[in-house]
């Protein structure tokens, strides 16, 4: 087994996929004044997971559509979902999303790379999302 750090030099005793079902649902940005992604919807279909983001536009929410997500654990031996990555390519801009689930919240790193000739700088944003649990 090759490893670039001791952390990755592990004995693997399971071939199970990363368990991620419990993170499916609607997640709301903790910042009501956000000018970026307002809502995330994580869904599962046939063992695969998908994200649908909705962002704040000048005239209301802009649905970004559904994109597959790659589920992530917290370490190489864990099979418990701890984050995900996914990408959107809108032609003029690509957006990479990098999510880490910390204490039940999604900490979402958002990396925007413009590909048009608008002169806009690539930028990042980090925001927090809580699941809409429907209780209380």
């Amino acid at each position: 087994m090759q490893a670039a750090q001791l952390f990755d030099l592990v004995e693997v005793n399971s071939t199970d996929p990363i368990e991620f079902s419990h993170w499916a649902g609607k997640w709301i940005n903790s910042n009501p004044e956000t000018t970026g992604i307002a809502r995330l919807e994580i869904s599962e279909a046939h063992g695969e997971f998908f994200l649908e983001a909705h962002a704040i536009g000048p005239d209301g929410l802009i649905p970004w559509g559904r994109t597959p997500i790659k589920t992530l654990a917290a370490n190489p031996t864990s099979r418990k979902g701890a984050g995900f990555t996914c990408s959107y390519d809108f032609g003029f801009v690509s957006v990479r999303l990098q999510a880490m689930i910390v204490k039940g919240l999604i900490v979402l790193g958002q990396f925007h790379t413009f590909k048009d000739d608008s002169g806009r700088a690539s930028f990042f944003v980090r925001e927090y999302f809580a699941i809409e649990h429907g209780r209380y």
Binding site: K70, A73, T85
Partner: peptide, 17 residues
């Protein structure tokens, strides 16, 4: 923030740290 993806057949989970 580190996202590791294994491309070998070691069975290790991809992870975020």
């Amino acid at each position: 923030v580190l996202v590791v993806t294994f491309r070998d057949d070691s069975g290790r989970s991809d992870y975020i740290n």
